[in-house]
Nucleic acid binder design. Structure first.
Lengths: 223, 223
DNA sequence: ACTCTATTTTTGGTATACAAAAAGTCCGGA
DNA sequence: TCCGGACTTTTTGTATACCAAAAATAGAGT
C-alpha cells in the first residue's frame, strides 16, 4: 500500500488523511457502500483516531460519505438523481459566476488565469495527456467562480466540484475537443465583458455535459 | 449562566455544544472577534475537548467562526460584503427553488406546509409575537427550498439560512406586514404551479430584503 | 515608549480507557 | 432447512492525561 503518511509529518494530519481517503474514493479504491472504520483508517495511515474523525467529518460535508449515529461512515452511493441535482445546482451557481466574472472584467478587474488555462488545455489535448485535460478543465470552471469575486459562492461551489471530480471518475465525459471549444467561447465572452453572453454560454455548456454523464453513469451503475 | 448540559445527557454532546455556542453567537453573547477556546468551552459545558472540537469544526463550515492553524477559532466579523455575497447566492438558489417548487406542484406534488406557515405567520403578527414571525418567515423560505425536491439544494442552502438568522439578529428587517404580503403572493404562485411568476416573485422578494439589512447592519457596525 | 526575550497558554495531536449501541455469531426450535 | 432470540465482539462517542510546538503574554532592558 503506497498510502502512508510519509516524509515530513509536520503538516496537518487531518488534512492529509482527508486527501488520502478522498483520493481513494475518487479513484474507486474505496467502493461505494464500504464502511470507513476509524480504527482501520487510523492504523492504515498511522495516526490516531482524532485526525481521522476530523477527516471523515469533512468528507461528509463534501458529500463523499454518509455517517449514521453510532454506525460510522459509509462511502456514498451515487445515484442518477444525485447527478441531476448536482447539475441543477451547478446551473444556478456557475451561470451566475460567469455573468459576474464578465461584469467584473468589464469593470476593469483582471481576467485571471482563464486564457492561460485554455492554452494549457490545448497543449494537453495535443499531447494526449487526458488526466491533465480533465484537471485543467475543472480548473477553468473553478477560475470562473473565483473571478466572480463572491467568496461565499466560491465556498459553496467547492463541494460541488469535488463531487464532479468523483462522477467523472465513474462516468466518462464527451469529447474534450468540443468542451474546449465551448470553454474558449465562454472565455472570450467573459474577457470581453459580455455578461449576458457569458451567462448563456455557461448555461448551455453545463447543460450539454449532463446527458453524457447520466448515460455513462447509468452504464456503470447497472452493468 | 443557564448554559449547562442539563437533564438527560445521552444525546450527542457535540451537537449540543454546537447548538449552545451557535445560540450564543446568534444572540450576540459571543461578540464578533471573540476567541473560542477549547478548554474554556469544555469546562463551561462540562464536556471534554473532543465534542467541542467537533462543534467548532461545524461552526466553521457553517460560516460562524473562522479558525486559524494553531490559533483556534474566532467568532467571525460580518462585513457588508458578506451580506451582499449572501444575498447574491440566495438569489441564485432560492429563485431556482421557487421555480422548481412551482413546477413540481404543477406536476401533482403536494404543496407542503406553505399555506399553513403563512397562516401561522398571520396569527403571530396579529398577536405581536415578533420572534415567532421571524422564525416562521425563515421556515417559509426553507419550505420552498424543501419543495424544490433537490436534496443537494437543500443541503447547500442550509448554511445560508444559518447566516441569515445571524444577520437578522444584528440588523433589523423591514415591515413584517410587507414581507408577509410578498410571501402570500409567492405562495399562491407556487401552489398555482406558475413557475415563472414564482421565480420573479422570489427574486424581487429577496432583493427587497437586501437594502434594509445592509442599512441596519451598517448602523450596527459603525455606531 | 519600544524592542527583544522569557514565561505561560493554547492548539493539535497521541495514547488509553470505557460505556453503550451496533453488528455479528451461535444455538435451539419449528 | 430456515428462523428468531440470546450471547459475544466491534465500533463509536466520549473522557482523561499527556506532550511538543506555536502563539500570546509578561517582563526586562535600553
Amino acid at each position: 500500500m503506497p498510502e502512508t503518511l510519509t516524509g515530513r509529518d509536520d503538516e496537518a494530519r487531518a488534512e492529509q488523511v482527508y486527501q488520502l481517503v478522498l483520493e481513494g474514493i475518487v479513484a474507486g479504491r474505496y467502493e461505494q457502500g464500504v464502511r470507513l472504520r476509524e480504527r482501520e483508517l487510523s492504523e492504515l495511515y498511522n495516526v490516531s483516531r482524532i485526525p481521522v474523525r476530523e477527516a471523515i467529518q469533512r468528507l461528509e460535508q463534501d458529500g463523499f460519505v454518509e455517517t449514521f449515529p453510532r454506525r460510522g461512515a459509509v462511502v456514498r452511493q451515487l445515484t442518477l438523481a444525485d447527478v441531476n441535482e448536482l447539475f441543477d445546482v451547478r446551473l444556478c451557481l456557475e451561470t451566475f459566476a460567469a455573468r459576474m466574472a464578465a461584469v467584473r472584467v468589464a469593470a476593469g478587474e483582471p481576467g485571471g488565469r482563464l486564457q492561460e488555462l485554455l492554452d494549457d488545455t490545448r497543449q494537453a489535448i495535443d499531447d494526449g495527456r487526458t488526466d491533465d485535460v480533465v484537471r485543467l478543465s475543472a480548473a477553468f470552471h473553478a477560475e470562473i467562480v473565483r473571478l466572480s469575486g463572491n467568496r461565499l459562492l466560491i465556498e459553496s461551489v467547492k463541494p460541488l466540484f469535488g463531487r464532479m471530480r468523483w462522477i467523472f471518475g465513474l462516468a466518462h465525459n464527451r469529447s474534450n475537443e468540443l468542451q474546449r471549444d465551448e470553454h474558449m467561447e465562454l472565455c472570450n465572452a467573459i474577457l470581453g465583458g459580455k455578461a449576458d453572453l457569458a451567462y448563456t454560454l455557461a448555461y448551455s455548456h453545463i447543460e450539454l455535459g449532463r446527458e453524457p454523464v447520466l448515460k455513462g453513469l447509468a452504464e456503470t451503475l447497472e452493468p
